[in-house]
Design a protein around this nucleic acid. Structure first.
Lengths: 304, 304
DNA sequence: GAATTGTATGAATTATATTCATATATATTC
DNA sequence: GAATATATATGAATATAATTCATACAATTC
């Protein structure tokens, strides 16, 4: 009766605090997980979570979570060993190209985690700026590209990583700080501080300002910390991923606000040649990216 | 893709050396297991067993067997812990009645193994001879009875343990030792040495000699070792479970032969009140009996 | 107390696993 | 080395289980 999916279920609910969120993380519906949980609880005649928000583990649930923490890594390791046995070990090579500046924040720890599991895979970062990073795949200059948009390219497979909210950053004393969220028009009167990237890659510009016909004065900075400094110095507004902000927010000089009423959400995807995408060391890298991201970035959401 | 049933599959095939035998141990058909194995091998693109008899693990198979040995006990322990949490701990009581003399050989180690997992369950052996041991259940004098026949008793559930072959034992120099197997008539001319139990419980008598109208001279001994001694001293023939014989066979004084061409096979069952049979500590005792028996008695077979 | 967000549940659907009926492969026996 | 026995593989049919869909119900927030 007890199956591995039940252990994954319990981990996901425990991590996310709700069945709904666990469901999107496991790529199943809320209903499916609810059925699974009820079936398991009925079978053993114990409830595993105390209902309420967030869902909390009962002692019985703890037993299974502990078991899961104990054995799941071993199962994953065995699966990796199997995969390694099948593929020839030499061929593992991952040249990674990254479109977004802030991505390095979580990419580095993910690469470290991956390296311990796949020491024989040669990893490299493809530097420089590229107008069409997906093309690097076909040109055999990169093996994996992290992008913010799905696309249709022959021979290329996109894997969703996660989605995250872009927040507007402004000085604490800024008049707009009084608002619960900013609209496109709020940007018109101030300077917009961004990374030195084409507008196509800047979500605020592409999806909010441009559609509204608003084109604010611009200023550029290479580093996140520099952008935050400029904002704190009242040089203008910026838009950064929610996950990148907490570190700087603490100081109290800047505040973050959602962009538009519904918030501005972006997704990240890992693109690879379809010939590579199926291979174990590739798939495992994408899994590691997801896992590490969810572990270190509390504000992100799963992406269908 | 990898599921616990796959680990059980691999363990069962490895232990038994064949898919067919593994199937009966897992209460599934040969076909089902073959499909499972092929699916698993196809998914990972490795073969897990080298085909041939017996089936041998490949290195890939070893990985999974090792994993199984590592995690299955932990999973079983967690399930026990869950069960213990649900049932009230005090109530565990197992008074065990045994019909067959030789059963003690494997019952004792099984009880030891069980005790480590369920220290709080009070175990006891119901001594003495009983004409109707199943009745002990209704009379609340025993909680579990090990018998050699299925029966229909209201409120009593029978669980199959295993089946085993009864072998005829004779002195090495005995003329019958020349035969590949003994028939009912072979018993007519000699003394039959048995435990002091009613004929109903002696399979050779009940199922072979009596149907053939043969009623040999009899002699009794309490202990297996005594029976073997008498046989070695040419005082007559005996019939003992195949598993009980190897210890004594080594000395070379006695030899064992199948009884009838097809062999004389008996089964053992654990009977319990249906109110008890579902409880975790009960079910686990029966599982332990099976496991320990299969581990220590190489000649036994699964019993549907 | 209305709106929102999350969980539970029955029925319908889809996906998976198992069996049945054989074919094929592998060992054993004469 | 056929012939026989014993095991495994496989496709189609069946049975079982898991998931979704469409809602109802519960909890929480405003």
């Amino acid at each position: 009766m007890l199956a591995l999916k039940h252990l994954r279920l319990i981990e996901a609910i425990h991590d996310s605090g709700s069945i709904t969120r666990a469901a999107s993380r496991l790529y199943l519906t809320q209903s499916a997980l609810s059925h699974q949980l009820v079936a398991l609880e009925t079978y053993y005649g114990v409830s595993l979570f105390e209902r309420g928000r967030p869902l909390r583990l009962t002692p019985a649930g703890e037993i299974l979570l502990t078991l899961s923490h104990d054995i799941m890594p071993k199962i994953e390791a065995a699966k990796r060993d199997l995969a390694r046995l099948v593929e020839d070990k030499q061929s593992g090579k991952l040249r990674i190209a990254v479109e977004c500046h802030t991505c390095y924040d979580w990419l580095m720890p993910a690469m470290d985690a991956y390296r311990t599991n796949w020491p024989e895979v040669e990893m490299d970062l493809v530097g420089g700026f590229h107008t069409d990073p997906i093309a690097l795949l076909a040109e055999d200059k990169a093996d994996l590209v992290i992008v913010s948009e799905l696309g249709k390219h022959k021979g290329v497979i996109f894997n969703p990583l996660f989605r995250y909210e872009m927040l507007a950053l402004m000085a604490s004393a800024h008049p707009l700080a009084a608002k619960s969220h900013l609209t496109a028009r709020d940007f018109a009167a101030d300077v917009l501080i961004t990374y030195p990237a084409p507008d196509r890659l800047l979500d605020v510009v592409r999806r909010v300002l441009k559609p509204a016909g608003i084109n604010p004065e611009r200023r550029f900075a290479e580093l996140t910390i520099a952008i935050v400094q400029l904002v704190a110095s009242r040089k203008g507004l910026a838009a950064l991923p929610a996950w990148a902000i907490p570190t700087y927010l603490e100081r109290g000089y800047v505040v973050a606000r959602p962009i538009t009423k519904r918030g501005l959400w972006s997704g990240l995807y890992a693109a690879a040649r379809d010939t590579d995408a199926g291979r174990a060391f590739h798939r495992d890298f994408v899994s590691t990216l997801r896992e590490q991201a969810f572990m270190s970035l509390p504000t992100i959401e799963p992406l269908a």
